[in-house]
Amino acid sequence: MIFKPHAVARACPIVGLVDGIAQAAQNIVQGFSGWLSDRRQCRKPIALAGYLLAALAKPVIGLAAGWPTVLGARFLDRIGAGFRSAPRDALLASSFSEAHRGKAFGLEGFGDNLGAFLGPLLAVLLMGALAVEIRWIFYIAFVPGLLAFLMALLVGERPAAAVAAKARIDIGPQQFPKAYWAYLLATALFGLGNSSNAFLILRTQEIGASLVTTTLIYAGFNLVAALVSYPAGFLSDRFGRKGVLLLSFGIFRAAYIGFAPAASS
């Protein structure tokens, strides 16, 4: 199956709308969930709620008869991702010392991207070898989502240090250090120039790749991310976070420059 260029062009505005709203929701909720987990001094219940919400969103995409339903399901999925991200990271950070934190997050990134590598391969197998309809792929995706929720139930949470209950957060934006604002500005500029993976997939299809080939390319992309995650974390522990982060921005820039002139063979 190959998507025609004009069909891909028609899909771009809808993809941008769906993914833009979904990612915005994730970013907003992520800030709130981080604050809430600090305020309540508990991370696990909030993370569990996010895992469950994301799992429930998958079958809704399969049920969708039009893009508005996909938008709603994707919105729900990203709300779940936003809810779990900050408390999950806080749980991980509290389990390791500063000297080994990069390796800890690198290993977490390895597992996350390895799942994103195996998932598309399983989808190709189901669609190609077993002729499973794509909507059933989303129904099946509920299973690993539910398993992730059940496994997260087994995670222990260390008691948070006792703090006095206060009605307001202790620190305001005016108290954040200049280095934090500089990093926040860099992150905002990166997000402005960054495109969704969905657009990269559409670009791959636009230059003539079949659905199966595009899926395999996406799987390879996630495999590379998985293989790099732990070494990058190790290097950040050994040589510092800033240098590794700058290197990653440079690699990202080179990759996007390469996407621009790509043409069908």
Rank of each mutant, 00 (worst) to 15 (best):
K4E: 14
H6Y: 12
V15T: 15
V18L: 03
D19E: 15
A24S: 13
A25C: 14
A25L: 15
N27P: 00
I28A: 05
W35P: 00
D38V: 06
D38F: 00
R39D: 04
C42K: 14
I46M: 02
A47I: 06
A47H: 02
Y51P: 07
L53V: 14
K58E: 11
P59D: 03
G62E: 07
G62P: 06
L63Y: 05
A64K: 09
A65I: 11
G66M: 02
W67P: 05
W67E: 01
P68W: 08
L71P: 04
F75E: 05
F75M: 11
L92D: 08
L92S: 10
R101I: 03
F105K: 08
G106W: 07
G106H: 09
G109D: 01
A116M: 10
V124C: 04
L126H: 02
G128Q: 07
G128W: 03
A129C: 12
L130I: 12
V132K: 02
W136Q: 12
I137H: 00
Y139N: 03
Y139P: 03
V143E: 07
L146V: 05
E157C: 09
R158C: 01
R158K: 15
A161G: 08
A162R: 15
A162C: 03
V163N: 05
A164I: 03
A167V: 11
A167Y: 00
Y180T: 13
Y183H: 10
A186K: 08
T187A: 15
A188T: 12
A188I: 09
F190H: 11
G191S: 08
N194G: 02
I201G: 02
R203F: 08
T204I: 13
I207V: 15
I207Q: 07
S210L: 05
S210R: 08
Y218L: 11
Y218N: 13
A219W: 04
A219R: 07
G220Y: 00
F221V: 12
S229G: 02
Y230Q: 12
G233A: 00
L235W: 10
R238S: 12
G243H: 09
S248L: 09
F252D: 11
A255Y: 06
A255Q: 08
A260D: 04
